[in-house]
Design a protein around this nucleic acid. Sequence first.
DNA 1: GGACAGGAAGTCC
DNA 2: GGACTTCCTGTC
Length: 320
Amino acid sequence: MGFLKFAPYYSDRKKNMNINNIEYHPVQPGCPVGYIRLDNIVDFDIAKTFDCGQCFRFEPVEGTRHEVEFAGVAHGKHISLAIEGNTLYIYNTNPGEFLRLWRRYLGLDTDYSEIYRDILSRSDNPALARALSLGRGIRILRQDPWETVCSFIISQNNNIGRIKKILSTLSATLGERVVCRGMEEHGGGVAKYAFPTPRAIAAAGEEALRGLKVGFRAGYLADAAARVLGGELDFDYIESLPDTAACAAQLKTIKGVGDKVAACILLFAFSRYDAFPVDVWIGRVLEKYFDGCRDTSCLGPYAGVAQQYLFYYERYKKGE
DNA sequence: GGACAGGAAGTCC
DNA sequence: GGACTTCCTGTC
């Protein structure tokens, strides 16, 4: 009672091996927010996915009745995600929006067992095997390209806590207010804001951005916004380029975007799984476990995914 | 307790 | 190779 089953006609068995049906619970008395429920979800760990450093705008929901719940704003919408065993709940959405947006955003259109198999078939490195095992369930998100450009420009010479704070301030100051009616129990107790548009960043100007504590990166953000507005930087064009190196070259025309930031943007916003960001952590990983080898092409088309697991592994070990 | 140095998902000049 | 904003951490 009170919910609708979206059976196999909503399911694309070829591209969507994890999702057999969607159960939709619309807003009704006693249920202040619409949500969907998906069964048989495998290789998806919400906490690891949102804690592995690819995304800075999702936080755990305090006092959740689920095992784990994370909420945040992405693509201009406030949602929360919870998991119970192999069942995934997504609050503040509906089946159509899930299929259009969140399935891709969450990487649920990708078969991770195949990715694990491919990576492990190319390398017998024990640290890599341990990293894949420890990080099992991390999915590479497909985030908004503009937000990802700004996030990783801000990430340089910075730490994750401060990156989160700056992005939150930027959004609250220059972003549009986002509706999260009925989401009080799902991290929606306070006002939520979309990430500011290129126009909003450009209009704010460098001085105002400095006031928001972005420091020397203010000029970089202003440059990025100007390039998007001027049409010199076209995310659809980048998306269409088959060669990842050619994509990186486009992104690196932005001031403040070098090899590492470009690779992060390609991996986290364009699902270019071969993009391999090398930061100080991964530099240490390559020294320690790979004899300092910087040629990661031997890890294959999913080298970037392997990188994210190694990153999570190394940081987890530090926290032990 | 508080000052201080060192470091943080890098890039530019 | 040095500078860059700001903030957090560890050390004394």
